Amino acid sequence: MRKQVTILALFLALIVFIIGCAQDDTTSKDSQASEDVVVKIGVQGSGGLFGKAQEEKLFEKAFAKYGATVEWVEFQSGPPMTEAIASNKLDFAGLGNMPIIAAQAAGIPFTVISQVLEGKKNVGVVVNSASGITSLHDLVGKKVAVGKGTNAYDFLLRGLFKEGIDPEKLEIINLNPDEAQAAFDAKSVDAWAVWEPYLTINTLSGKGTIIADGEKLNLLSPSYQIVRTSFAEKHPDLVVAFLQTYDELLQWELEHEEEAVNRYAKERNLPVALMEETRKRARGISIPVSEEVIAEHQRTADFQFKIGTIRKEINVSDVFDNQYIEKALKL
């Protein structure tokens, strides 16, 4: 009997030891969850706020605390960014409302973690100053450049419908910003629906005139910061660190406005006055997404479904999550 008790005691001790080892191993894995992680950050074009971050390795320093490194990936517009997220080739992206709506409708797993542009004046339609075009109605029968699937494409369509104009009566040409700028300069298109800084670049230079923007038409085109959902679930601390670093960059802009404007103007080989105007029209923010903005985003999604741009109805609130920005800003 004593021998059986001893064997049982040894068996129980062995079980406790194995469980303890498993817990230690799990704890070890959790503590190293971010180690060897390469955080892929998407940017649209070079320079700007992220250009400063890259130069000073601000995100690299923030993520190094967690054993993670950074890879920068450049894009010309939003839709390719969501495609990269879908294939696990991108973790963070800042983009407008339409690419986000299309991505959700396509079942791409992402989460909106903050709002980065208000959306009143950052998107619009610019025309050649000598064209005589003064309103959206004047675009009937004209060639209009726009990147299909972008927030500018959404703005153009919503603006036309709001003004009672059939988009089929326009010749809408799908061009990325570089192609559209060349076409606009050559006057091979009559108008261009696009975002900042292209609006200001073409107006202050005297080439173009803005005939519609969100403020004039009372249409919001906000931009957001998004993250690949599985990345956020595995590395919530890195998401918070990303947002904290982005907020630090915005604070630098506010405290060093003249330096920031001069820097950005030099990067784009533009006059300082032009860059100052660009910042007035599209000043960066980093805030939780309000219920009002989500409601407007839902109306945009409903409109896109109605006209057939997306093939299914979506509940946009499913992809918004303010917990990370609230932690980052300590709200």
Rank of each mutant, 00 (worst) to 15 (best):
F17W: 14
I201A: 05
D166F: 08
D25P: 00
A105V: 03
K312C: 02
G149F: 03
L49W: 04
N97D: 14
L95C: 06
Q225R: 00
G149A: 04
G284A: 08
I41V: 15
T26L: 14
A102C: 01
E118D: 12
V39I: 10
P80K: 05
I310P: 06
T27H: 09
F63T: 02
D321E: 11
D190K: 05
I19T: 11
I211V: 01
L10W: 10
S205A: 14
Y66F: 14
A13S: 13
K29S: 11
K266F: 08
G206I: 12
C21Q: 14
V39H: 01
G107R: 10
N262D: 11
K330T: 15
E60R: 08
V39P: 00
T200F: 02
S223N: 09
Y66H: 13
G96N: 02
G48C: 08
Q225E: 15
S205P: 10
G206L: 14
M275V: 07
R281K: 13
A130V: 12
K89G: 04
Q115G: 10
E196R: 05
I133A: 09
L90V: 01
L170H: 08
I41S: 00
M1W: 10
D36S: 13
L170Q: 03
A191L: 07
A328C: 03
I18T: 04
I165E: 02
T111M: 11
T245Y: 06
I310N: 01
Q225Y: 11
K121M: 05
E291P: 00
I15N: 02
S205V: 05
L249K: 01
T278D: 03
D25S: 10
S77T: 15
T134N: 14
D185E: 15
F231W: 03
T300H: 12
